[in-house]
Design a protein around this nucleic acid. Structure first.
Length: 501
RNA sequence: GGCCCCAUCGUCUAGUGGCCUAGGACACCACCCUCUCAAGGUGGAGACACGGGUUCGAAUCCCGUUGGGGCUGCCA
């Protein structure tokens, strides 16, 4: 049975590239009936923090990629690492080195092949405090990495320097710990990022030195990098790479996983909307692409929208809780009512791509006053028929029965009166009631909001409009010509006065 | 500089010598639908980096060039 491992180094957040690597390991394990091992590579003390490890675990759980074994801590396996070092020392694979960085640089300055020059290889100095241990790499020959994704990759040994395996402080380094642990854990397939390809021959050298030349090495599969728009490896500095941040924006784990699977791989059918079990069934390491893939948030967002729209209403309402009921909600908790939200939910679901966009769609219901978008208001203030429409709505809505269908009819009649198509006629009402130019269908929105609040908001908007339009409009009636003439010159000054009131 | 990897529309990709006047998806544009916005529908623009081979035939195979990337740490 295959045994794969995902071996992240704790760096304070869960990188999307790591998530993709984890996913491909996980898919391979699930499909082959193998074991998915999680190993935390924290040999460097500075990377050994509990909360960072907890972050990785939590992100993996969110993505439904729970490990079958682990997490193991590399830091907890020091004894094994030191034992391996002793064994390598005993077999003559290692030598001690007391060169300073400066000395090496001075000696190798003009060399064609940079890196350590093997100065201490034949000096025969003993291991001890202050001395690093280097691996004696043969000068001639070739190491060939059998890579499932790329085929055979050859590395001339002459291009590989005598790399350090144990620091002068006595601490074993990544390459050694990583290899020793892979051996100990019986790893059969090493699936990781392409950035590790150049160090693979070094690991193979250690593996053979430890286990013997005849031993079977694991199969390797180096996955293409995830890059940004500049085609550079995704970096914490300039790119949004934290899985947690996508979770907070309201991406769904299933959608995120689906998108990640499409980076460097595709389903034979050509379909892109794929359930996890379809991924597990169809995934093949052999089919993984060779070239880097751009992490396209727009496409992720679209795919997420597909998942959001496909949810049943109850699941959607549930999933929205962190944004509607949590401390992050833009309204006071006591004003929120899930039953009310549920009425609007199907309409909202169709209009958002991420859950984080939900509050803006419904905040007009749960806020005492709608959050007025000033650009939207400006368009109402500039509309010569706005006052007429608002007055008409105020009159008609006061007595009609209160349901979306009736509101629709009544408003359509009003539109006909003012000589406009419904789409344009309803604009002032929408802005007055919801504070925005866009949102869920207006009549359903008002039906949910209720008559009292709707009328109150219409009146407030009408009052504000009256102040903006100035007194000229009132004696002259609501004729379009007069309103248009009055609105522009009176606008700025009167508007400022209202703001202070 | 050295070693290694990569190269199809802006992006993710299909394509494994003839089915390709290169297919799909995201994004973009137009139109339709429509109470706004979405969603949906229809249509459009848009790519085999370049040069040599091999072959009856090349996006597909080989070589070179160019371009991009990774690694080059007593980090992982």
């Amino acid at each position: 049975m295959p045994r794969v491992r995902f071996a992240p180094s704790p760096t304070g957040y869960f990188h999307v590239g790591s998530a993709r690597t984890a996913l491909f390991n996980w898919l391979f394990a699930r499909q082959t009936g193998g074991t998915f091992v999680l190993r935390i590579e924290d040999t460097d003390e500075e990377r050994n923090r509990e909360d960072w490890v907890a972050g990785i675990l939590s992100a993996m759980t969110w993505l439904h990629m729970d490990p079958d074994e682990g997490p193991y801590r590399q830091s907890g396996r020091r004894d094994e690492h030191h034992a391996a070092v002793d064994s390598l020392w005993a077999s003559g694979s290692l030598y001690a080195c007391d060169c300073t960085r400066e000395a090496v640089e001075a000696r190798t300055a003009g060399n064609a092949t940079p890196g350590y020059d093997g100065h201490c290889r034949t000096r025969g100095i003993e291991r001890g405090p202050g001395r690093a241990l280097r691996f004696a790499v043969p000068d001639e020959g070739t190491v060939v990495v059998h890579d499932i994704v790329r085929g055979d990759v050859e590395f001339p040994l002459a291009s590989i320097e005598d790399f350090v395996v144990v620091k002068s402080s006595g601490q074993p380094l990544f390459l050694l710990a990583n290899t020793v642990d892979d051996i100990a854990m019986g790893i059969t397939h090493v699936i990781r990022g392409e950035d590790l390809l150049p160090s693979t021959p070094k690991g193979m050298l250690i593996w053979r030195a430890l286990e013997g030349d005849g031993v079977a090495l694991p199969a390797f599969a180096h996955l293409p990098m995830l890059v940004n728009e500049q085609r550079k490896k995704l970096s914490k500095r300039r790119d949004p790479v934290s899985v947690e941040s996508y979770r907070e924006q309201g991406f769904l784990p299933e959608a995120f996983l689906n998108y990640l699977a499409l980076l460097g791989w595709s389903h034979p059918s050509g379909r892109e909307l794929l359930a996890v079990d379809e991924l597990v069934t169809a995934f093949r390491l052999e089919d993984v692409n060779h070239s880097p893939a751009f992490f396209d948030v727009q496409k992720l967002t679209h795919l997420n929208g597909e998942y959001v729209r496909a949810m049943d209403v109850d699941a959607f309402v549930d999933a929205c809780r962190p944004w509607t009921s949590g401390p992050g909600a833009p309204w006071p908790a006591e004003r929120f009512d899930e039953g009310t939200f549920r009425e609007l939910a199907p309409l909202v679901q169709e209009r958002v791509d991420t859950l984080g966009a939900v509050p803006d769609m419904v905040d007009f219901v749960f806020l005492a006053e709608p959050r007025m978008d000033e650009a939207a208001w400006a368009s109402v203030a500039a509309d010569p028929l706005a006052a007429t429409v608002l007055d008409g709505a105020l009159g008609a809505y006061a007595t009609c029965s209160w349901d979306a269908g009736t509101l629709h009819q009544v408003t359509a009649a009003l539109a006909e009166q003012v000589g406009r198509k419904l789409g344009k006629a309803q604009a002032p009402v929408r802005v007055a009631v919801t504070g925005r130019r866009v949102g869920p269908p207006l009549f359903e929105s008002m039906a949910v909001l209720g008559r009292a609040a709707t009328l109150q908001r219409l009146q407030a908007a009408r009052d504000r409009l009256g102040a903006v339009a100035g007194s000229e409009e009132l004696p002259g009636g609501a004729g379009p010509g007069v309103g248009e003439a009055g609105a522009l010159p009176g606008g700025a000054g009167a508007g400022a006065a209202v703001d202070q009131a």
